[in-house]
Design a binder for these strands. Structure first.
Lengths: 219, 219, 219, 219
DNA sequence: GATGAATGAGGATTCATTCAT
DNA sequence: CATGAATGAATCCTCATTCAT
């Protein structure tokens, strides 16, 4: 991560080649996995000579970082940070989860790759951690906000709760969209997942919504 | 995973060598990671010749399976399956979580390795899945049981909920014990983790415990 | 070394670029050594594009030759050839040695480079030989002259003696100025080196100077 | 140079292979030069697989060191250190020079290689320096001894003189045996070289031998 | 059973040189 | 003249696996 060691292309032709390499890399990574991906192959798929790879990248890590960077914009999610922006916390939570899961599904292969690379390369392990931490921090802030406003139960530490619940969502997303762990048969559709996750999250925080969406019953 | 292709040692000396190799393998795997572990090194650490490795194992996967097998007994956890064995569901849940987290912590390095290997080797990916599924199934049964007994809210699918909540715990365990993600500073101790996880789980299921541990308030 | 294969620049801009390249080459060669110097780097340091290099030079050898050529004027030394020009042979010898050693010291890095390149490139090995031979020949002539005039002993072959003694000086210069072999501690200053070398040389030739600088005693 | 990073062979077969590799390396180095020598070639010439090279050596440097080590015994020379052991200093000097030049001639190709490698690899530059320094130190001791005994003139610093004169011999040896600088035609035979070098050396030190070999004439 | 030397396929990487703009 | 991207041949090195002793 960090800025590419190699200078960015100065000409149009250069930019085109670099882009072709990044696109090819994504394809090869998704096809062969990070470890089995050969730089030779990436160059071949990009339609250029092996040496050209080194004009823009130093090694496999670097081009994977470029692939990630390119996909990053699409991977941004709102989180619960803006929970206070609206009147209905539950709706916000649901929207947040939906956005996260949709982005995850859209980039499922890449997320799987990141998971793989993180197991192998410390630099990307750190990257993944940073990404997760940002998500967790935003959600922790949202939880704390709800607690202050009396909407969520005050009996859990926002940080730890956020870490647990955020992990719940990301783990589930990984399991379903990447690992193909299908809950029970193929019958679980996307909405059901969003719904369940949101319910569990809300209940876990004891969110006593005044809305009609109230979950569980209090005798 | 599957029975060893090589016959188990027939002599005492053979048994000793095999055991030395498995022990050495665990050390080398934990030291270098699965990918960087060399069979040569394992043999060296075990104090025997390279060739002797092949007397007992066919390849790296196989000896990793042996390492896993050896540790498996310690990794068995009760889950919530026995929820009905006692009168206090919350206590059972907590005990289950504690047992899981303790086992995870005890074998943290190995769990991290399994995570790594699963990213690389399909066979172990399947192994990990089976292991997780068993856990999830047991917990799903427990949840269904609670729902039937009216102790847990009936508004979630037991399977999906179990998958989400079990994932929450295992993901948190991985993050804290393997990846070293420390929640907030160093102040979060083991009991707080067990407590929080259990609370979130119970709340998520809307478990209306009559015990004094009741969480959240129902007017 | 031979005329440049590429035509000398016709325009002012061209001359400037060529000069920049030669200067850059000297810096890069002295910094990285001949073998590790990359043409790419030379162009970069010269502040021009890679391709521009080939406008003026065909390859690394050629630009090294240009660097050498540029420094050559400064590397000219009188030798002993003009020994007969003056009345005091010893003074001439000393002046000759001093001039040689000063020039060597001034261009130490380049001389080191030449030594390196000569080990690698036959063309420059020949160049170095020609340079040395010229020096040796001049000194041989001087020795022969002294022998004829009865100033030097006639018991050695002027050619071989010149080769040995000239080699002595150049080897010492290399050792001290390039390789950093410091005689005894750091206490040996330049004058001492000139003095010692001259003495040894004069004695070796049995130069019976009538001057007061006479070395050794003849009963 | 330092102990080999790879363990020495434990079996006879191993020793044979290692020896074959060292012998092959010497041949390939002498044939192709250090820089152009390919490890692949060495293995091929040794009649074994590429990988076997790495069983005994880490890289080209290391096997070159082994080649050098093997030749070292033959390259030991007496120097002038034992000058006082005999009655005739001049004879000792001559014997010393002869031994040095003979050893140099015997290992000319290797000496040339060392010269080349020293220009490229700092480790071998250091090795060459150590070797030279040892030689210089021994000769310096000899010179000092002669000076004390009144046999050599006391007007030069033994260290610096030794460095200069030792360099004279080694430089001449290199020029004649390695670089093929033939003094004047092909007529200079080995004895003449020994004789001239010894004379120059003795004269340079103003050695007033009482022997009949007295050089130069004092009117 | 144990030993440890031998094997060799396979991929990353460099950089002088060319040429279209 | 200047530019700088594209080229690709050529070598190093690793390590799982075999097998003669």
């Amino acid at each position: 991560m960090a800025a590419p060691a190699r200078p960015l292309p100065a000409t149009v032709r250069g930019a085109r080649t670099r882009a072709a390499l990044v696109a090819a890399a994504r394809r090869v990574f998704e096809r062969d996995g990070y470890l089995d991906a050969k730089l030779t192959d990436i160059a071949k798929v990009a339609g250029c000579a092996t040496g050209s790879f080194y004009t823009y990248f130093t090694n496999k890590e670097e081009i994977f970082a470029a692939v990630l960077e390119q996909a990053q914009q699409d991977m941004m999610h709102p989180g619960m940070g803006r929970v206070s922006d609206t009147d209905d916390p539950y709706a916000v939570l649901e929207a947040s989860n939906r956005a996260y899961l949709e982005a995850y599904r859209r980039n499922a292969k890449l997320m799987g790759l990141l998971e793989q690379v993180a197991q192998v390369d410390p630099e990307f392990r750190a990257f993944r951690s940073r990404r997760a931490d940002a998500f967790i921090a935003r959600n922790a802030a949202g939880i704390a906000d709800l607690q202050e406003r009396g909407i969520a139960g005050a009996d859990v530490d926002p940080q730890l709760a956020s870490r647990a619940l955020s992990g719940m969502v990301s783990r589930l997303a990984y399991g379903i969209f990447v690992a193909g762990e299908v809950p029970d048969g193929a019958g679980v559709d996307f909405d059901a997942i969003v719904d369940t996750v949101t319910r569990l999250w809300a209940n876990a925080l004891n969110m006593n919504s005044d809305s009609t969406r109230a979950i569980g019953t209090c005798p």
